[in-house]
Amino acid sequence: MEVQVILFAIFAVGAIGSAIVTVTRKNPVASAMALVGHFFMLSGLYLTLEAQFVAAVQVLVYAGAIMVLVVFVIMLLNLGTEQQLAERSSYLRGTLGTLFAALFVILLALAITSNPSGANQLSSKAVEIGTTESIGQSLFTQYLFPFEAVSLLLLAALIGAVILAKRHVQEGA
């Protein structure tokens, strides 16, 4: 077996496993840790697709920044002991949700396998488009406007987060 196939299998199983752990753990901290693992697995999958820049950004932004924020909020909320954390589980919701999700997966798999893309090889250009150089090249030429728009969005999110999360001071005090 080729090394790419083995790597794909390892990362795919790891990604699915950590995703399932993320949605099934009762303790949100355990979910968050599984999600960090999931992001690393996805980063590995991006590397099998020769997308080096996206793989690095995945680890930096998701596993680094966003998950630190999530864990920080979980700790800040101080949700109590694990006993209290146990969710009142609704069997109806759990079973129906999983059932329809399984149905949806089967539908999607059927849709994909009945129309095979026929693409069995990475494009010959895959190696060169995944580099930081080529991403930066088109980010600052063809995609300059979306890039600037995103910076505005981040500013708006920054202000919104500060206003939402700040403690309201007493009126007139």
Binding site: V5, T48, L49, T113, P116, S117, N120
Partner: peptide
């Protein structure tokens, strides 16, 4: 080039 079909990634 890898020999993994695109469909595997999609599934």
């Amino acid at each position: 080039p890898t020999s993994i079909p695109l469909d595997y990634y999609l599934i």
